[in-house]
């Protein structure tokens, strides 16, 4: 219950007027009734009836009712109600504040979480990129090394092949020379004729060509 400033004075007036009017009216009515009833001196006390209907007991009760209720109302409106209202309001405010703080902290925590996740994702993608780059580099290096190696090997094979080819030619040539000599000597021994170098060579070549085939 809050007290609204503007209306409060107005309503206070009405309330006081109403309450005051009521009290005064009752007290005056009761007093006149009592005076009228108390007139027949001691006859006013009904001996056998309800004690509550004993009119002579009315003024004191109304009097003390007004005194005690006015006291209670005064304590209530001046001290108790404002104090309780204040405490309740304070508590409500505190609860609202706490809820707001909690809300703020929650959103902050969510933001931090989102940032963290984003950073994590970035780091992961970066790491992946680095891994990929390293892999690529390694693959390229390997390919290059392989190519170089292959080239070197090819060169070696080639030199070896040419050397082998030369040696074979040389061997063949020397073989032919030996064969020609042998043929010349064999011909000389067999028929005593020393054939011309050219014809021997041709014959050896023809034979070696056949022999090779």
């Amino acid at each position: 219950m809050r007290r609204d400033g503007m209306d409060s004075a107005f309503w206070n007036g009405i309330r006081t007027a109403g309450f005051g009017a009521a009290s005064v009216a009752i007290f005056s009515i009761a007093t006149t009734v009592v005076h009228a009833a108390a007139n027949p001196e001691e006859g006013g006390k009904p001996e056998g009836g309800l004690p509550q209907l004993d009119v002579s007991a009315f003024p004191t009760q109304i009097f003390w009712l007004i005194i005690s209720f006015a006291l209670l109302y005064w304590i209530m409106s001046k001290m108790a109600v404002p104090r309780i209202a204040e405490v309740l309001e304070e508590r409500q405010e505190r609860i609202t504040d706490d809820l707001e703080t909690a809300e703020r902290l929650k959103s902050e925590a969510e933001k931090v979480q989102a940032d963290y996740e984003k950073a994590l994702a970035e780091a992961r993608s970066e790491a992946q990129g680095q891994i990929k780059a390293a892999n690529d580099e390694a693959a390229a290096e390997q390919a290059k090394a392989e190519a170089e190696h292959a080239k070197k090997m090819a060169r070696k094979v080639k030199t070896a092949e040419t050397r082998i080819g030369k040696q074979r030619d040389e061997a063949l040539e020397s073989l032919m020379a030996v064969a020609s000599e042998a043929a010349v000597e064999a011909t000389g021994k067999l028929i005593g004729v020393t054939p011309g170098e050219d014809s021997v060579k041709r014959a050896v070549e023809a034979v070696s060509g056949d022999g090779r085939a």
Binding site: I14, G18, F19, A25, I26, L65
Partner: peptide, 12 residues
């Protein structure tokens, strides 16, 4: 008396 106070007060 209490009921009358309420009644009169409310009427006022």
């Amino acid at each position: 008396a209490m009921a009358s106070a309420v009644f009169i007060g409310v009427t006022v």
